[in-house]
Nucleic acid binder design. Structure first.
Lengths: 349, 349
DNA sequence: CTGTTAGCGCGTTCAG
DNA sequence: CTGAACGCGCTAACAG
C-alpha cells in the first residue's frame, strides 16, 4: 500500500522517462503508439494518478475557485453555494468553501487563506463592513478575480450579481397600496445590509409617491424582539394595516410573533415578504412574496467568474441585475384565482 | 502588482537566507532578535505570505479536508456542511466541497478529485450505490481517512455518524398508536436510502408489536405523484387514519398533496414527520416531528475526522449514533399544553 | 519521437 | 545563530 505511485514509478515500469509519461497524460501526440500503450499499462497497473498539488505548483494554475458565504444554514446562501458548485464541476474545477459568519474579519481571514492557497478566483457574498470600507478592497486581492454575489462591495471594481432590490421593494409595496392599504410598515433587519437598504428605498419611493408616510421598523434575529416590536406597532394610535417584511428571516420572525399575539394574516394585518421560501405556500394563507431567482444568482456569478478566468480577463466590471417577481398568495389579502406556486422539489435525508 | 513576493524576495530584502525567513515564519527560537526584526520588516514591506501550495507539497500536509454532499439545496445537507465548515475553521483547515448529486459515479469522481488534490480526509454523505457496493470502498481510498455522515457505507471500516433512525421510526409510530390510531401508513422516498429503510423498520416494529398491519407507501420527488398516491390511499376501503412521513421532503410533499385534496391534519388524517424543518411550527396546526440533531451530526462527524488526522490514526472504527427527539405539535392530533418549538434563528439576505 | 536539465516555492537536512 | 544544498512531484524548454 504505502504511498501512492509517483510519475517516476510509472516511468520506471514502462521503461521510459517521466517526460514521456507526462506527455501521455497530457495527450501530447508526439508519442509513439506503442510507447503510449506501455505507459498506459504501467499507469493502470500502479493505479497512478497525477499529484494535482505538484502540478498546480508547476503550472501556477490550481483549477480551484473559492466561495465565501456568511453561512450555510440560510437556505438562500446554501442555494447560491450549490449553484456555484454545479458550475465549477462543469468546468472541472474544485471548490474551496468558507464561512464568514457575516463578520468582516472572518471574511478577510478566509479570503486570505484562499489567496495563499492560490485559488484562481472567488465568488463572495460580502459581509457588511462595520467600520470603513471592505477589507476585500485591500491591495493583496488586486490580482485575484472576485465576483460579488447578492451584495456588491462598495467602491470596488469587482463584477457583481444582485437582484432588483429597489424595484422589488417598490413592487411589493405598490401591491399593498393597490389593495387599499395606507399605513404600511417596513420591517427590516438591523445591521445596514445592502439588500435591506435597497428594498427599503424602493418601499419608501412607493409610499411617498402615493403620498403615504413611510414607517420603518427593525427586528433583530431574536424572535422575542419581534414580538415586542409587533406589539408596540399595533398599540399605536393608528396601527399599520399591512407589513412588508424585507427578507425571508424577518418574514418568519414576524409570522412567529403574529402567532404568539394570536394575529392572523391578512385579517389582522396584511403581509408581503421579500424572498420566497419552502412552505410559503403551505401556510394558510400562503405568503405573498417578492421572489428572487436564487439559482440563477449563484450560477451567473460563477459563470462571470469563469469568464474572468478565461478570455474576459481584463474587461470592464460587469454588473448584473436579476429580475424579481411578485408571487401573490393569500397573506396580502388579495383574492386571486388560487394560483399555486410549489417550491422546487428537493431530495433529502 | 506583478507576482506576489516569494521567500527569496524577503530573504534578499532582509539580507539573510531563505532559511532564516523560514525559521522566523515557523517561530523557531534560534534566530537573533535583531535578525528577526529585520525579517519581519521585510515581510511586512513586501506583503509577503507563504505559498501554501508549495508548503503543502513539501510537507505532505495540505491542511485541507473535503466534504462531499448530495446537494446543498436540501437544508439538512446544507446544515451538515455548515457544521463541518465551522469545525474546520477551528482547526485552521480549508474545506473542499463537492456535490455528488446522489449519483455514485459523480461521488466517485469527486472523491477522486479530492484524493488527487491531497485533501487529508473527507466527510461524506454517501450516495446510495445503484448496483454492487460503494465505490468508496475501492483501494485508492484505503489511505484516505473517511467519515460517513447520515448514512454509513455498507461493508466499510469508516467511522460513521448517524441518528437513531430505527428508534425514531418506532417513536413516531408509537406516538400515533398511543393516540388510538390503528391504520397508519408509512410514506417513504423511492430509492432504497439507508435512512428510509431504518425508519421503516422502526415503524414496522412498532406496528407489528401492537398487532397492527404495516402499510408502506412511497412517493417520488414529483409533487404530482404525491397527490395520486394520497388519493389512492384515501380511496381504500379502510383508509389510514394517520401518516408517518419518513423525511422532511415527503412531509412537505404530503402536505402539499393534502392541500390540493382539501385535506387538513389532524382531522382529515393525523400526521407525524421525520426531521424538523423551518416553519413546521408556523403551519396550522404545527407539524409533529421526530427531530434529529442536524448541527451535532455535522460537527461530530468533522470532529471524528480530525481525531483521525491527529492521534486516533489507527484506532478501530467509531460508529456514533445520535439521539432523536419527538416534538409534539398539532398535526398528530395530540392536544398538549402549547409548547412552542422555535427553529433556531438564522441571518439572511 | 524521446530524454535531460531546470525550477515552481518551500523546509529539512547538515555544515559552519 | 546562520546558510548551502537538496528534493517534494511535475512539466516547459531545449536538445538529440
Amino acid at each position: 500500500m504505502a504511498r501512492p505511485a509517483r510519475m517516476t514509478d510509472v516511468a520506471k515500469t514502462a521503461g521510459v522517462s517521466t517526460m514521456t509519461v507526462s506527455r501521455v497524460l497530457n495527450a501530447n501526440p508526439n508519442v509513439k503508439d506503442e510507447t503510449r500503450e506501455r505507459v498506459f499499462a504501467a499507469i493502470k497497473r500502479l493505479r497512478y494518478h497525477r499529484n494535482e498539488l505538484a502540478r498546480s505548483l508547476r503550472d501556477k494554475r490550481t483549477r480551484q475557485i473559492g466561495i465565501l458565504v456568511p453561512n450555510l444554514f440560510d437556505p438562500f446562501f446554501a442555494n447560491c453555494a450549490h449553484a456555484v458548485g454545479v458550475v465549477a464541476k462543469q468546468h472541472n474545477y474544485s471548490v474551496n468553501i468558507a464561512i464568514s459568519n457575516e463578520d468582516p474579519d472572518d471574511e478577510f481571514e478566509e479570503a486570505n487563506r484562499m489567496l495563499h492557497r492560490k485559488v484562481e478566483g472567488v465568488v463572495v457574498i460580502p459581509a457588511t463592513p462595520v467600520r470603513g470600507s471592505s477589507q476585500l478592497l485591500l491591495p493583496e486581492f488586486s490580482n485575484l478575480p472576485i465576483v460579488t454575489l447578492d451584495r456588491p462591495v462598495e467602491g470596488s471594481h469587482y463584477d457583481s450579481v444582485v437582484v432588483q432590490n429597489w424595484s422589488g421593494g417598490q413592487m411589493g409595496t405598490r401591491h399593498l397600496i393597490a389593495l387599499g392599504h395606507k399605513r404600511i410598515a417596513f420591517i427590516g433587519l438591523v445591521g445596514n445590509l445592502y439588500t435591506m437598504r435597497m428594498r427599503q428605498q424602493g418601499y419608501r419611493e412607493a409610499m411617498t409617491s402615493a403620498r403615504l408616510k413611510p414607517d420603518m421598523q427593525t427586528v433583530t434575529d431574536a424572535p422575542e424582539t419581534s414580538v415586542s416590536m409587533l406589539r408596540k406597532l399595533m398599540a399605536a394610535k393608528r396601527p399599520p394595516t399591512a407589513l412588508f417584511c424585507a427578507n425571508n428571516l424577518t418574514t418568519r420572525h414576524v409570522l412567529h410573533a403574529m402567532q404568539t399575539l394570536m394575529m392572523h394574516p391578512p385579517e389582522s394585518i396584511a403581509l408581503v415578504g421579500f424572498d420566497d421560501f419552502e412552505t410559503a405556500d403551505l401556510l394558510r394563507p400562503g405568503i405573498t412574496v417578492v421572489r428572487q431567482p436564487v439559482e440563477s444568482l449563484g450560477r451567473i456569478a460563477a459563470e462571470a467568474l469563469f469568464a474572468r478566468l478565461g478570455e474576459g480577463k481584463h474587461g470592464p466590471p460587469k454588473h448584473i441585475i436579476l429580475p424579481v417577481e411578485l408571487v401573490v398568495r393569500g397573506s396580502c389579502g388579495a383574492r386571486l384565482p388560487q394560483l399555486r406556486h410549489l417550491p422546487k422539489p428537493v431530495s433529502s435525508s
